[in-house]
Computed example of a mutant assay.
Amino acid sequence: MVAFPVFLDSYQQVRLSSSLVFLAHLLLLLLLQPGEVNSENFTVVGPGEFVLAYVGDEVEFPCHLSPYLDAEDMEILWFRSQAADVVHLYQGRRELYGQQMAQYQNRTELVKDDIADGSVSLRLHRVTLEDEGTYGCCFSSGDFSGEAIWELEVAGLGSDPHISLEGFKDGGIQLRCTSSGWYPKPQVQWRDHQGRCLTPQTEAIVKDAQGLFRLETSVIVLEGTHNNVSCSIQNSFLGQKKEFVVHIADVFLLRTSLWKSIFFGTLVGLLLLLALLTILALCFFEKQRRSQEKLKKQAEKDKGKLQMELDWRRAEGQADLVCVSLQRKTPF
């Protein structure tokens, strides 16, 4: 019976351990109740300090609780600069649009597949330059409220450069480069085949109605240059550029072909004009010849008639003289 007290001590230790485990589980359950969350124990994690979006694309703003907690019954708000500027509102297990700012209507989409784990995301469609600025997301439930803040930066990577032949000027060929849809203001550079910068003849970078930059620049390349010339446009904010290369030999070949076409076209036109003038001249002379022949025949005809009339009158006059002579010789 000496071991009996030891048995009681072991039993008491086991009972005490079970009680401690139960109390620990109970404490954990109390901590995880949404209505009794301690704001010091949970934080809201946003997408980061900065978010980059391209004009016309969509951007996503993910937010979650740390540590993860069911947020299905919480109020989740995405706002612009301040809470009163509502971008998107989730409340009472549904999305409310009555307080949403006009510029975000029909452009937001809530992704809540993992809301039970405290993770949600807001998609903003058709990004514009006006969307650039400060954003935040806020989780609130009972005594708990937390938010995350970030900056949305918007950029535009414009269209591919287009080089066109403008004509021949100052002993060389004038090339023009155009592109649009850039933001912020881009940098443009002409270069030859060796990478050397070419001084532009003209350069204009202006904003369009959407606030995006459109550029137009030209350069004169001297004749005899049978190498590549490039127009490069760079967005320094994105660290990206677009480039277009043209081969000068092909352009001058186009010039030769153009002048040949103009020469032969002019020559054919002159020949046709000469032939037409020749035909008109022949027709004119032929008409004049026929008119003269007709006048000549008419004159000869009139002359014959006049001669006949004159002969007739002479004959008639002689007959009258004979009659008069006869009358004088006849006695009464």
Rank of each mutant, 00 (worst) to 15 (best):
C177A: 07
Q33T: 11
E216P: 03
G35T: 05
E72N: 08
D311M: 12
H88P: 01
V251D: 02
A102R: 12
S164M: 07
D70N: 11
F144P: 00
M74F: 12
T278L: 10
V14L: 08
E243I: 05
P331V: 07
V221R: 01
L175R: 04
N227A: 13
M101K: 11
F285W: 14
D160K: 13
G269D: 05
D170K: 13
E293R: 13
L310G: 09
D9C: 04
L198K: 03
F22R: 15
L272Y: 02
G224Q: 05
H125I: 05
Q210L: 06
Q187M: 12
L198A: 10
M101A: 13
L267V: 09
C323D: 13
G317E: 14
A84T: 14
L122Q: 03
I220Y: 01
N41M: 14
Q33V: 13
R214H: 04
D70P: 05
D73R: 07
F168A: 09
L272Q: 02
G304D: 04
K287D: 08
L16D: 15
L165M: 03
P186S: 06
D208K: 03
L32C: 10
A71K: 02
D302M: 11
R314Y: 11
F284Y: 08
L32H: 10
S180N: 11
L321G: 03
K294Q: 12
F213L: 02
D114P: 00
V37H: 00
V86P: 06
C197M: 11
L96W: 02
V154M: 07
V21E: 11
L69N: 10
E243A: 03
R94V: 07
L8W: 05
Q318L: 12
R290Q: 09
N228H: 15
K301S: 14
Q210P: 00
D131V: 04
L122N: 01
Q187F: 12
S236K: 08
A204C: 05
D302E: 15
L198I: 06
L16F: 05
L310Q: 15
G158W: 05
T128W: 02
V221G: 04
Q210V: 01
L254C: 02
G35Y: 00
P67N: 06
A281C: 12
A3V: 14
G239W: 07
G56I: 01
E58W: 06
T217E: 07
L16Y: 08
K301M: 08
K294V: 09
E293C: 03
P5V: 01
A275L: 08
V245C: 04
E95T: 06
E75G: 13
Q105F: 07
K303V: 06
F61P: 10
F237K: 14
I279M: 07
A102L: 13
W190F: 15
E60D: 05
